[in-house]
Amino acid sequence: MDDLNEAIRQSDDYETLLKRAEHLAELLEGFAPLLRRNEQKTFNIKALTQKIIKLNTHRFEHHNVTVSCPVNTDESESFEVTAPFGLLQATLTNLIDNSIHWTNLQAEKKGSDFKPAIRIDTLPHWFKEGPALVVMDNGPGFSLTPEEAIQPFKTSRPGGMGVGLYYADKVMETIGVDFKYVTQKI
């Protein structure tokens, strides 16, 4: 919204305005499933990652974040999941929001040589409980413990509300899946 508003105020060219308006419409469409009844359905996780990448492409470009999603290019194995698509979409969007924020903060600290990056990948055989979808980034890492991070109103993000990871945990709990948050420096 802010980008579109600013573009209108600056009298940007028609194509730029049209592109931003179309992107806004796509983002709003992405929230529509949250307003509908969240019925469980079986789908390939690649369908979710493709939609998430498409909905956030403009944001990745705007924030100068490099994104990798090997499952979308068949470099990683996909898997089937039975869950409310819209809830998983909203949860994954929240994780990406966090990654964008923290990788950009890291870029401010490290300077122009640092390139913010996010990787969304699958770990189909990593956990004994079953396959996993993971969001990784090269931000500074968590300063909260896993137990603290999923508590409501706990955050280390300046101006953050502390409900994102709590929401993610509750969505996973609702659909009967473990939400694992792991911090590991590589």
Rank of each mutant, 00 (worst) to 15 (best):
M1G: 14
M1T: 07
M1P: 06
M1Q: 06
D2S: 14
D3W: 02
D3C: 08
D3A: 15
L4R: 03
A7T: 02
I8D: 08
I8R: 15
R9S: 13
Q10M: 13
D13Q: 11
E15N: 09
L17M: 10
R20Y: 12
R20S: 08
A21W: 04
E22G: 09
A25L: 12
A25I: 13
L27C: 14
L28Q: 13
L28C: 13
G30F: 02
A32E: 14
P33A: 05
L35M: 14
R36M: 10
R37N: 14
E39Q: 12
Q40H: 01
Q40N: 05
Q40T: 00
N44K: 11
K46N: 06
L48W: 00
L48N: 01
T49S: 09
K51R: 14
I52V: 11
K54N: 11
N56C: 12
N56V: 00
R59D: 06
R59E: 03
F60A: 11
F60Q: 06
F60T: 02
F60G: 07
H63A: 08
T66K: 14
P70M: 00
V71C: 01
V71N: 00
D74I: 01
S76P: 00
S78H: 06
F79P: 00
F79S: 04
F79I: 00
E80F: 07
E80C: 05
A83Q: 08
P84L: 12
P84S: 15
F85V: 06
G86L: 11
L87C: 08
L88N: 05
A90G: 09
A90T: 01
T91K: 05
L92V: 07
L92C: 08
T93F: 11
T93L: 15
I96R: 04
I96A: 11
D97H: 13
N98I: 01
S99D: 13
H101C: 11
T103P: 04
N104P: 08
L105N: 12
A107I: 02
A107Q: 15
E108V: 07
K109C: 01
K109W: 00
K110N: 14
G111K: 12
S112A: 15
K115F: 12
K115P: 07
P116V: 01
I118V: 02
I118F: 03
I118P: 01
R119V: 15
R119D: 13
I120Y: 01
D121L: 15
T122M: 09
P124G: 11
H125Q: 13
F127D: 11
F127T: 02
G130F: 08
L133F: 03
V134D: 05
D137E: 15
N138C: 03
G139Y: 02
G139M: 06
P140L: 13
P140W: 10
G141H: 11
S143W: 04
L144N: 07
P146R: 11
P146T: 03
I150R: 12
I150M: 10
Q151M: 10
F153K: 14
T155W: 07
G159L: 05
G160S: 05
L165D: 11
Y166G: 12
Y167A: 10
A168G: 08
D169I: 01
D169G: 02
D169T: 04
D169K: 12
K170G: 09
V171W: 01
E173N: 08
E173M: 04
T174H: 14
I175P: 03
D178M: 09
F179C: 05
Y181C: 05
Y181K: 06
V182H: 12
Q184F: 10
Q184G: 04
